[in-house]
């Protein structure tokens, strides 16, 4: 708990961020170089889908990342509400645009893959629909941050919105699955091991790690920006107070 509170101090956090940032960025770049090489050159082309199967290596990790970021956002919001940890709502706020981008990427790459495979850019299939709803949840969360001027109030209200959304994500997922299923069922995370061959699985996992580190790198940067923006605001307010 003591360590946890230590990072409530923005200066401490900025020091940690300054130390971590170059490392995380370097790991991200290495993972992407390796992952893209594996998935674009090493992994075999599918006998049915030909080269289009390679879109999957960009598409699937983006969808994972989109969900992961929402989880990070909801957990940070819970910490912000329960412990009033000052950096937690900054963390939730700065995660949202990144998660939105990942979700958008997964929708777009999915559409690009769907055109040659399913013959149409968009079908109202369960997974597409629930990712789309996730995209809307991100938009709503960011909109409420924008709409409330007072930052403390905005932080609390958006935390509530994020948590209610988080409770709803599995319910929405379940209901949409019930509604319509055309997408291939989950093939990586299964009880009796993955159902896909290692030649595809390994590049996929490397890309998954690359996306996770990309999120970490971007999130650290976004946190720093947000902390600095708040400092700036404080300074401007103090300056205005003098006059």
């Amino acid at each position: 708990m003591a360590r946890f509170e230590k990072f409530a101090n923005p200066t401490q956090f900025l020091r940690l961020q300054g130390f971590l940032q170059p490392w995380v960025t370097a790991i991200t770049i290495i993972l992407f170089v390796v992952g893209l090489y594996l998935s674009l050159f090493v992994a075999p082309a599918d006998y049915q889908q030909k080269e289009t199967v390679r879109i999957m290596f960009v598409h699937v990790p983006a969808a994972w990342a989109g969900l992961m970021v929402y989880t990070v956002m909801a957990l940070s919001s819970a910490v912000a509400i329960i412990f009033r940890h000052p950096l937690a709502d900054v963390a939730a706020k700065s995660a949202a645009p990144i998660g939105l981008a990942f979700t958008f990427l997964s929708l777009v790459t999915g559409a690009l893959w769907g055109k040659p495979m399913w013959g149409t850019y968009w079908v109202w299939d369960a997974r597409l629909t629930s990712m789309f709803v996730l995209f809307l949840l991100y938009l709503g969360y960011m909109a409420i941050w924008q709409a409330i001027e007072d930052p403390h109030r905005a932080a609390r209200i958006s935390s509530i919105v994020a948590l209610v959304g988080f409770i709803n994500v599995p319910i929405i997922k379940f209901s949409v699955d019930w509604w319509n299923t055309l997408h291939q069922p989950a093939s990586v995370f299964k009880m009796n091991g993955p159902a896909i061959s290692p030649s595809i699985l390994i590049p996929l996992l490397v890309m998954g790690a690359a996306y996770s580190f990309l999120f970490l790198a971007l999130h650290l940067l976004a946190l720093k920006t947000e902390v600095n923006a708040r400092k700036l605001r404080q300074m401007q307010l103090a300056e205005a107070g003098k006059v």
Partner: peptide
Amino acid sequence: VTVGLRKGGLLVSLLVLPLYVPVLIFGIS
């Protein structure tokens, strides 16, 4: 969540309509 805001209307729709999905699906079904 939008009570103190001047223009809540569209924002409310954006926040609430995605949450309506389960009710709509099972309601229809």
